[in-house]
Every structure is written in structure tokens, then in C-alpha cells.
Design a protein around this nucleic acid. Structure first.
Lengths: 208, 208, 208, 208
DNA sequence: AATGAATGAGTGTTCATTCAT
DNA sequence: CATGAATGAACACTCATTCAT
């Protein structure tokens, strides 16, 4: 269920996503947004109430529907490792397609000051965690994954690796000699994804 | 080589670190800093030239000396896994003690807009990477680590896992039932550290 | 002659009176009014033309019919002092019942900037003055009031005393130890009214 | 003891007084003030903290020293009526010279919303009341004034009459045929003052 | 060497009003 | 007839920085 946002509101959210991702929340002014979105400065306050509320709307708008994909994945008939690998791919695709969004979450949600209590957002994360749990348990029941796995720490490793790579783009472009945007994105989709899959697999197998 | 900073400058940097970490670079005003540091508003511009330059000074001030510890570690007589484990511990200790600083790096360096070209900073990272390479190669030569390891992707996994955990503190406090600050910090030092060590170990061993 | 205002217009006027009285004309926004009156923001402009015109309508709506009571009083068979006393009572009752209205008049009409030329309003006041004149003359003809009375200055003393008391409510509550709203209102209706009556009486008798 | 305000601050206060008196507090913008005072918009916030605080500063600046004149009057060797008359003259002169100021007090203090708690201001008023009490008691002791006078109600009559006259200037200009500014001011200084003095005198004598 | 005064640009937000429907 | 959408202008205020001293 997408929220009931009209075209102009969606347009504002898209622009906001881009700019927030580029320059951070504080670094982006309502005027910046209105200029790029070619709307009146007052529109943001008019539609969303405030800049803060705009961020909340953006988060909810972009994260809704994330969980359905996971639930769908659970039901698929796949062997455990294939399922985990597909899950990681799914994560990275999602992260990549809404890259701006997740950079914002990573940035702005971290700041304790920013209230952004968004109970619904916290629930989305818990639901995701639950789905992951189901998949892991399945693998354990089949005797494929080892028993004592701290499931909540898997997400930090998956997402953390991806984010750290993305957030230090200039450094890795340099170090890995990825000269074009495409080369970089391609590296993420192939090598980085494989690295994360390999990491998680090793972690799920290895007994000590 | 510490820079030639006088007491007042250092005091400003310490305050800046705290505030930047709490509220981000854009969210912190020179007035905030000058108020907490009990100095004149003009002092920051006077000493550092600009707010941007203050950030640069802060980064250089705090990251200098990071590499010595690593070089020292390389020379120690330890078996490969012990060395890697100690390296991870060293990273996390460092990250923990200057928590504010690394949050800033994570936050503000990501922003492409922020120039912060800091060539010296990039060199520090490269030096760190080199040290890691030495340790890994050592393990490979001893036949303990597998051959085809993409070394530059190890840091994203180590640091990324740590950062993702730290940046989503409220969520993990909730999910892992860590009710006090101490409980949380303790979890980082023991369980999270062990998780990262385990992850890297599994990755270094596992052939597939 | 009541104006031809429909129910919704009257409702808006009543809300406007309350809010203007509480927060002043400039301090009250059309949005405030529309929110309380549960009407659309555009309604005010639609019905009254502008916020300024709304004030004008309000004044006319509330002051109409004020004069009839006076004319009725003139015709009553009462001795001069009783008539004056009754007049003062009538004034204060009126002022009290439409307290908000008169606060507005006192506030907003004073502002020279506010055009509010309202010729009809000026005429109401002149009519009131004429009525007062009739009563005074009557008393003078009967030899009860002294001759050289500057009648236009009586209203400032009557109304001014009342307003000054009402506008400094917090001060007089404190000074006269009037702890409740009721105690205050009661003081106005008895002691303050008596004070004003006494003042005017003394003024009408005393020769020098 | 005047406050420690520099020339520019005083200049701002004078301009603010004029504009607040003309257009009210809400009706006057910081921009209006800065334009007339030919200072930067930011100066008001810089010097006074906020618009609200500017008003407070203005009130304190203008009302300080008001009480000294009264105390001086008390000590003068004059017969009771002469003293009261002089007191009224003193009031009106003061009101006239800082006309703007008192209009502001009348306007803005009335609004309950406006905090303006200014304890010192309330004390000034109480001190004034005390001085008036001394003078009245003196007259009563000499057997010149009647006994049962409600002293706190004298001020509303004195000031209320003056204010009501001033606040309805257009009306009284019309009614009393005072065609020029000078004619009006002159009427206040002579006829209106005499009317108030006469009123109070009558009130202090008349037994019923 | 250090600072208080000052400023212009920019912040998020609210305003009364207009207009297409 | 009535209104939701939309807007440009204005609002109080904060910003990083400059500069005379």
C-alpha cells in the first residue's frame, strides 16, 4: 500500500532524496529542493508540514514494500545457500536502486538528536530481521548451517560492508582502479556482492 | 609528528569533535563550538581559517599516529590468526576511544560535496591497507590463509560491521536487550568483536 | 438594520471577535480563524473580501443596535442622577457582554494606520454623544447638574476608567486581591461601576 | 540609573518605540525597524536577542526613572489639592513626552498572551501607587479629602481618561473641531488636563 | 595576538490572497 | 456556490565570516 501522495509530492520526495543523499539533511535547504523540483518554496511546508516531516515522509515512502520481497523470497523453493545468496543480492539491488535513500537512513537516522521516532520504520526493520531468521532456521534444520549463529549480527556485516564501500567511493575507486561510474557500479554488483555472499557463507558454515 | 597546535587550538578541536559527532558538521555552528569551548566566535576563523578547514585540521590531528600501532603489530611474533584477531581488536579499540572522530569521518567524508581532499589522509589509509596486506601475505606464505583473498574488501567488512552496529545503536539496544550504556559497550568489546574476528577468520580459511 | 449575513458569516465573525480580542488583529491569522470556525481558509476572503474588511464587518455587526438602548433610556421617566447612573450601568453591561469587541475597538481603531474609516461607525458614536447630551441638558434644565460641563469629555472618563481597569487586569487582580475570574467580574459590576457613577456624579455637581 | 546601552542600541529603541506605537508590536517587523534606524536587520537580534526581548528592553529603558519624579513631588510643600493637580500634570506631561511608549504599554501589556512578565515593571507601578497613597493620606489627615476613597481606582480614572482621549484622536478632532496637531495637543495640555483635575478633585471632596 | 562589533546571505516557516474547478 | 491547491512575499532569526582596533 503506497501512501496517498500526489504527483507533485512524489516529485518533491524524489528531489529531496537526491539532495539529502548528496549533501546531507542539514546541508540541504528547502530552497535547494524547491529550485531543483521547480516548485514554490512554500510547497514543502505546505505539503509535508516541515522539513523534518518531509524526511519522515521520504523514509516511509521509500521503505514501504521492502518487506514483501523478502516474504516472497522465503516461500521460494531454493536450497539454503542459494536462498541466502539471493537475499544478499536482493538487499544490494534494493540498496543500489534507492542508493540516496539508504545513504540518508544511514546518515540521518544515526544522529540520535534527530528524533525521527518513526515506529513504523523500526517495525519494518524488525520484520526484515524476522524474515532473515526464518531463512537461517530453515538452513539449520536441514543441517546445512551451523547452530550457534547470532542472527542480528549478520545484517551489520552485510549492510555494513556495502555501506562502507559505497561511502568511501573515492578511496576504492582509486585503490581498485575503477575509473568510470559504470566500472564502479559493476564492481559492486559482481565482486562486492560475491565478497559479501562468500563472507556470510563462510560464517554460516565454519564451526569455529 | 604532532602538528604545532597551541592549547586553545587543541581545546577547540576537542570540542569540535564532540559536537560534530553529536550533531554532524552542518548541524554544528561555530557559535555552538565557541560557546562550549568558551572562546570568542571569531577564534575559529582566526585560528583555522574557516569551518571547513577546522574539520580538516581535526581529521589530521586525530588520525596521525594511527599507523604506528599497526607497524608495531606487524613486527610482533604471533601466529597469523592471532595477529589478525589482534588487528581487529586494535581497530575496534581505536574506533571506540575516538568514537566521535570516526563517526565524523564516516559522515562527512561520504559527502562527495565536502572536498576534504586531504591527500595526507588518503595516504594514511593506504599505509593501513599496506600493513594489512603484509599480515595477510604472511599468513598465506605460512599456508594458513587461503590464496585468493581480495584484501581491500576486508576493511569494509571489519569497519562496516562495526559502524553499522554503532550507527544503529537504538535499534540494537532494543533488539539485543542492552539496557545500559555499559551493557552496550561491553557487547561491542566482547560479542561484536568476536563476531567480526570469526567472520574474517572464516573468510580467510574457507576455500569456497 | 441588521446586515444580511448568513449563518456561516456570523459564525466567522464570532470566532474572529474572540481571537482578535485574545491576540490582536495582527496576531490573529486567517488560518487561526478558519481552524476554530471549522471553515475553509479561503472563506474569509471569499465572504468579506479581505482580513481588513472582516474587521470592519465585525465592528459594524457588533455596534449596530447599541444606540436603540440609549434612546429608550432617554424616554424613561427617571430623575437625572438615576438616569445617568443607569446610563453608566448600561455602558458597562454592554462593554462587559461584548468585551472582546470593545477590546478590539480600543486596540485596532486607535492605530492610525488602520484606515477603517467606517463612516457609519463614527455616526454611531456621534449619535451616542447626542443622547448623552440630551440627558445632561435635561438635568441642567432641572437645575440639578451644574452648567459648564464639557459633555464630550464625560465619555473618556466613563469608558477610559473602565478600559484602563480591564486592560490592566493582571495588575488589579494582584493589587485588589481578586483571585478568581468571578471575583474580578463581580468587582467590575459593583465597585468599579459605583466608582464611575460616583465620579461622574461628583463632576456634575461640584461647581469648581 | 539608565541601563548600559550604547548609542546604536538607544537609536534602535527610539525607532522601535515610534513604530510599535504607530503600528503595534505584531504590526511592526524587524525589517521596518532596521530600515528606519538604518541598521542591519540582524542587529536587533544581535543586540537584544529577539523581537520580544527588544520590547522588554524598551519598556525598562523608558519607565526607569519614572518614580523619582513622584517621590520628589511628595516632599514638596504644597497644599493637598495643589499636590494632586501637580501630580496629574506630571502624569500627563510624562505621558505626552513619551506618548509612543505608553501607547505600547497600553496595547501590548493588555494582551495576556504577551508574557512580558517584567517583575520590575510591576514594581514600578506598585511604587507609583504607593506614592499616590501617601499624597492622598496626607490630604485626608489634613481633613481636606474625604475618608472612604478607593485609591487604586484613581489611576484608572486619570490615565484612562487621558488614554481614551488620545486613542480616539480622530473622533475628538472631529467633534471638538481641533483642526491642527497643535490645537489638539494644546487642548490636551489645557482643557483635558483641567477636566481630569476637576474630576479627581470632585471625587476627593464629594461625600456622596 | 586576539576580539567585539557588525553584516549580508541564507535559514525554515507563515502569511493573506488568488484561482481553477 | 464554495473550496483545495498553490504562490510570492514577508517573517524572525542564525549563519560564517570580516575587520578595526
Amino acid at each position: 500500500m503506497k501512501n496517498d501522495l500526489n504527483d507533485k509530492q512524489i516529485q518533491i520526495l524524489e528531489v529531496a532524496q537526491t539532495l539529502f543523499a548528496e549533501k546531507g539533511f542539514d546541508g540541504t535547504s528547502i530552497r535547494d529542493i524547491s529550485k531543483v523540483a521547480k516548485i514554490n518554496v512554500a510547497m514543502v511546508s505546505y505539503y509535508f508540514g516541515s522539513k523534518e516531516k518531509l524526511l519522515e515522509s521520504l523514509v516511509l515512502y521509500k521503505t514501504s514494500g521492502l518487506n514483501e520481497q523478502m516474504i516472497h523470497l522465503i516461500d521460494e523453493k531454493l536450497e539454503p545457500f542459494a536462498k541466502i545468496n539471493k537475499l544478499i543480492e536482493l538487499y544490494i539491488n534494493r540498496l543500489n536502486s534507492d542508493r540516496g535513500m539508504y545513504r540518508i537512513l544511514h546518515f540521518e537516522l544515526a544522529s540520535k538528536k534527530r528524533v525521527l521516532e518513526l515506529p513504523s520504520f523500526s517495525e519494518i526493520r524488525k520484520a526484515n530481521l524476522k524474515s532473515l531468521e526464518v531463512i537461517i532456521k530453515e538452513g539449520q534444520d536441514q543441517g546445512v548451517f551451523r547452530k550457534n549463529i547470532i542472527i542480528p549480527l549478520l545484517t551489520p556485516t552485510i549492510l555494513g560492508t556495502y555501506f562502507h564501500f559505497q561511502m568511501n567511493k573515492p578511496f576504492f575507486e582509486d585503490i581498485l582502479d575503477l575509473k568510470t561510474e559504470d566500472a564502479y557500479n559493476n564492481y559492486v554488483k559482481t565482486d562486492l556482492t560475491k565478497h559479501i555472499q562468500q563472507t556470510i557463507k563462510a560464517l554460516l558454515i565454519n564451526e569455529n
